[in-house]
Design a protein around this nucleic acid. Structure first.
Lengths: 235, 235
DNA sequence: CTCTTGACACCTAGGTGCGAACTT
DNA sequence: AAGTTCGCACCTAGGTGTCAAGAG
């Protein structure tokens, strides 16, 4: 019943979902450095993400910044344990449309064309840089990352647009002139179930209820009805 | 009235207080690397530290770990802005004695010899490593550092001993074989007013009152008497 | 009208000294 | 007796959705 869920949304062609994303630099130079070629990334809390995605995930954006929920967390393997990496996230638009929510049909409707999308800011993981062994040791969490109104562009027109997180693994090449081969030294990942609509207030009541049910910080809004076992505290 | 305050306590000779501390490696090889030779460190919250020191600072140590109050914070200058540094703290004994508190005279009395002091663990500043420009940009705070019973040795006999924080600036030398010249690449600092007695429970009631008056987390124990203006929230 | 902002009650998470209970 | 540990009430600091008010 959500138009954007059944419309076969396509991500930019340069990005193969949940697989290494090779920037569109031409086939001749698409070789990746050995430090990133084997990197594999697995999304954590995938069942929760899917649960949200089935309803049409909404994320609140505010001027001061609001955390994402669910939190973007990944498990990484295949790094060079002794090599240094920087981990980043940004957000890319899924389409160039803006939406409005039709309460009578409980669905999102196209409501015009989005502003020209300026590249979103890069969010460094606070532990960057660190060695591969450190990153692979445990789940990497972007729990302190905050979404703001200026997320995708500088016009403050982020909300009602549809986007998806992108995760970058950048090998910190110590070689001089390593910037000449910069495209070889990174690898990007996206997960389709993490796409979301940026909003300043929740539209879909079922999304609100799922947030309240699964985000510990929203426990104050839970009713006394016991949750189904195993579904609580998933964030 | 505190014996340890009037007894002319001396720090290890290898450490010149609040000045660069050259390890005792002999005069021939005492040259320091240019990245650390000019480093200057200034203690923050010095008036508060002095206020505590005049009463005889006590710091709670627990099994799980307890923060210091006042917090050890410094401002750094004279680093090479583009060089990488690691910042550390440890704790060194001021003497080899153990103490007990005599409530009738409100003073600490020598109560025996301390255990053989194993080297205390090193506490890395969580932002390490970082470039000099980053460290010098703002106050460097060790507010998350926690004192434990195993602080100075592994026998659990830390309390009732007298120690002082030591702060290390280590230049992360990228050169191969840099460990051969390791002594050249660091610089250590101590501040006499930061010395303290490690305790598992406060002994001097005036210390307790000053902690309550100045530590925001202890606000629940403050009486309704207004504090002298400018003395509150000093931590 | 649609959308955004800000104050608010209610949480999580964790830092305080207190005092009873415990250990030696 | 002396020293340590642990649960506790009371804080700080900050993450929730709600709802009224504001902005366009």
């Amino acid at each position: 019943s959500f138009c954007f869920l059944s419309s076969g949304l396509q991500l930019p062609q340069s990005c193969e979902l949940s697989r290494p994303c090779c920037a569109d630099v031409g086939s001749l130079s698409s070789t990746k450095a050995p430090q990133v070629i084997g990197v594999r990334v697995q999304l954590e809390m995938q069942p929760l993400w899917q649960q949200f995605d089935q309803l049409g995930t909404e994320m609140i954006v505010t001027k001061a910044g609001r955390r994402m929920f669910p939190t973007f967390q990944v498990r990484i393997s295949g790094m060079d344990p002794s090599a240094e990496y920087v981990l980043l996230m940004d957000f890319i638009p899924v389409d160039d449309k803006r939406y409005r929510y039709a309460f009578h049909s409980s669905s999102w409707l196209v409501a015009g064309r989005a502003d020209v999308a300026a590249p979103s800011r890069m969010h460094f993981h606070p532990d960057s840089p660190a060695r591969g062994a450190q990153w692979m040791k445990q789940t990497v969490s972007f729990d302190t990352l905050k979404l703001t109104n200026n997320l995708l562009d500088d016009n403050g027109h982020v909300s009602r647009s549809y986007g998806i997180p992108r995760f970058h693994v950048v090998y910190a090449d110590p070689a001089p002139n390593s910037d000449l081969n910069a495209y070889r030294n990174f690898c990007s990942f996206s997960f389709p179930e993490t796409r979301f609509m940026a909003v300043t207030a929740y539209q879909n009541h079922r999304i609100t209820q799922l947030k309240i049910a699964s985000n510990p910080f929203a426990k104050g809004f839970r009713t006394t009805d016991p949750q189904p076992p195993g579904r609580e505290e998933m964030g």
